[in-house]
Nucleic acid binder design. Structure first.
Lengths: 266, 266
DNA sequence: CATAATTGTTCCTATTTCGAGAACGGTGTC
DNA sequence: GACACCGTTCTCGAAATAGGAACAATTATG
């Protein structure tokens, strides 16, 4: 309707609209037909057809006059995670990393140019909410997290530029890298030392250290990271101990993947 | 495809096919265009269009020639759970129930005639895998779980028959109720005593006790249950202690919901 | 208590979109 | 180096969808 000037018309509008409806239902926490129709600039009758179809396919439930996403999404989400190669071979190690450092440990990968968390574990000292049961935040940009930068540093240059061009270098704190040259220099450093740091670049008072996880073929699959308050992530612990442990965890996960990929790729 | 003779045909085939593709991708753990096309009896070009659209909408990722569901589903699933009224007001109580009984505690609701788990907590004595990170099993039928029967017992009669007719009374163990009259008698008992039991009706060696959670208006919203091996769930513990605690938990969750709907809803 | 205003649902037809086969370009294999 | 396979693109006829309007059901309102 409004903006797909560059992309080829090889996509299905009906499917696209269905996706919009799913995302709108999530955002609105359920909605009625009229509300949705107004929100998405569709006719009531069309909106109704979409909802009826999604309901029949059990992706949507209807309570009274309110349509909401069904718990099928919880099931699908858990399956997606369970099937992910990084989860299968990195879950235990991420837990150990959280245990050893006492802080939050994250396992993530890049998807569509954004950071997607696969697994988060709260270490014994970790502050904040219980991540795994709280509201999930939106996906992060890659350039202001440690794990994200670790991934960016090992992406093919072409894809790096594609992502930067598409997502931009949004600023979140005074420390956020917003300049492409600074970023490139930082990524070179990361490649050299084998890990990345996030020094209050996303959230004031929060530091993090992340290391990339690569496939046997050398393609970056994702990263592990540890994050915590600057008060605890400082001095030698921040400069040496945590990086060592994070890099070690990444290496162990790589080894796990390596051992499991004896089978053919197809 | 074959079994919706009653429902009006007010649904969109394109959306329906998109849902099939999502489910196939989950089932196949990712697939190529040709593989998917064969699996769903679609042409390659059509399948490609669907996948391209889902990818553009970030519900699907492409790795090499393999398309898979993206981690957006994990995000959506967590949001759906987080937004669910039973999770918001029943999470803490479910955890407490697991702690007090030492066994698995479940929080569930009915969707599309099936049991959907909202939250599972492993108590200190609970055996088995860590549910919340393991592969999710498929949704259960309602008639052979304690929570499911607790819900069925408080559904409007019309809806009860609708569900039974649609889902049937599948047998999983010799103890499974497979007869409508037996089920009705059982549901009457459940209504009388306020809770339901599952005595090896789903899995041999596993018992469970469930109690319904109703809205202030008297509509059943779901149920909580405790499950464990017959060796531990026996005698007075099974006959009195656990039912008491389960019913108490259900009542507390109802009270939480009640209090939240009194104040301004937002 | 009756009327008005919403909301969800259904119906219908023109119009747009989708579907299928074939062809293209790229990759891996024998 | 030729062949087979896969993903992608193209084009046009065929079929599905979008939207307006009417209907039913529920709720708000005077």
């Amino acid at each position: 309707m409004a903006d797909t000037p560059d992309s080829s018309r090889r996509t299905l509008e009906t499917v696209s609209r269905a996706c919009d409806i799913i995302k709108a239902l999530e955002q609105l926490n359920g909605a009625g037909v009229t509300e949705l129709a107004n929100h998405l600039d569709l006719s009531k009758s069309s909106t109704h057809s979409y909802l009826a179809t999604l309901q029949e396919k059990q992706l949507v439930v209807k309570n009274g006059n309110t349509y909401s996403l069904s718990l099928e999404f919880l099931y699908l989400g858990k399956t997606v995670r369970y099937q992910h190669i990084l989860f299968q071979h990195g879950k235990d190690q991420t837990e150990e990393l959280a245990e050893e450092t006492g802080e939050f440990a994250h396992l993530m990968c890049e998807q569509h140019g954004l950071e997607r968390n696969i697994y988060k574990v709260m270490g014994p000292n970790a502050i904040g909410n219980e991540y795994h049961t709280s509201k999930e935040q939106n996906p992060d940009y890659l350039h202001f997290t440690s794990a994200g930068k670790a991934v960016l540093a090992h992406l093919p240059e072409e894809r790096l530029h594609e992502i930067v061009n598409r997502q931009g270098l949004i600023s979140k704190t005074p420390n956020t890298i917003t300049d492409i040259d600074t970023l490139n220099a930082e990524l070179a450093t990361i490649r050299e030392q084998g890990y990345a740091v996030n020094d209050e670049e996303e959230i004031r008072g929060i530091r993090a250290v992340g290391a990339p996880i690569c496939s046997p073929e050398g393609m970056v699959l994702g990263a592990v990271s540890v994050s915590g308050p600057t008060s605890r992530l400082s001095g030698e612990f921040y400069a040496e101990t945590v990086p060592e442990k994070v890099v070690e965890s990444a290496n162990i996960i790589e080894a796990n993947i390596n051992m499991s990929t004896k089978k053919s790729q197809f």
